[in-house]
Computed example of a mutant assay.
Amino acid sequence: MANYSLPEELNFRIQDLPPADQPRERLQQFGVRQLSDSELLAVLLGSGIPGLSALQVSRQLLTSAHRDLHLMARFSLQDFRRQPGIGQVGAMRLVAAFELARRRDAAQMRKGAKITNSEDAFHYLRPVLADLNHEEFHILCLNRANKLLGAHLVSRGGTTGTVADAKTIFRMALGHGSITSLVLAHNHPSGQAFPSEADVRLTRKLCLAAKSLDLHILDHVIIAGRDYYSFADNDGLPE
């Protein structure tokens, strides 16, 4: 990868760089995997504004996200628009790129998904829940072989919680005739990967209700960005 320093003149443009150092030209010549994060973002943005090249805008964007692409993936259209040099079209390109990445991950897991442990559940649910700025409660319905019969959004809430109604959960679950077990899941937008007292109470309530329906709750997984908490892996599911 070529090393270069940006000219400090205010009116610097990407075109002022030698062709071999321009992101689009470097992509064509060396391939997409040779580009840095800022160069890839500059290609998506396409152009900057007077006084700021697309590459400079991209570097500022990375700085605002602490150079963490997982954090940037949680940016909304409005969050991107607030960044200097990013207009409506550029913001839409960025949110679309991150959404495509999420859908790719989700599609890989959905092909014959088998959920046998908390890691399987996390990898399945991460593309759906990890980047949300609000809480959602989901269930995964499984047959006797732990094959996924269906995944359902139960409820959507705010930044601090959502309501998970037992009647709604088991009505959805029993819609699958061959269901024998399910995995409960919700996210913590705060990034804190441990259960609240309310999470523990809800899990206990749902485990008790499942027994009366001859269903088994395998786990309750809390997704917190790149991390997760599993009731089954820690203190076990409440009796």
Rank of each mutant, 00 (worst) to 15 (best):
Q108L: 13
L45Q: 02
L62C: 00
E39G: 03
A101Q: 02
L215W: 06
S53H: 09
E119H: 03
K211H: 15
T180C: 02
A73T: 05
Q60P: 00
T159M: 14
Q29F: 04
I139W: 04
A145R: 13
S212M: 12
E39F: 04
N133D: 14
H186I: 11
Y228A: 10
R110Q: 10
L77H: 15
S47V: 02
P19A: 14
D233A: 14
Q192K: 12
V95A: 06
A130H: 11
C141V: 15
G191A: 12
V32M: 10
E99W: 04
S76N: 02
Q88T: 10
L140D: 00
H220C: 14
D131Y: 03
R110I: 00
S38Q: 11
L174W: 03
Q108M: 07
S64E: 10
L27R: 07
I217G: 04
I223T: 10
F12Y: 15
E119Q: 08
P18R: 12
S36E: 13
R110H: 01
F137R: 01
A91V: 04
P238T: 07
L215H: 06
V183Y: 12
K205I: 04
V57S: 13
A193V: 01
L132E: 10
D131T: 03
Y124D: 08
A113N: 03
Q22W: 08
P189T: 05
S230C: 01
C207W: 10
V163E: 09
A151I: 00
D16L: 09
F30C: 10
A198C: 09
V183T: 11
L213P: 06
A173P: 02
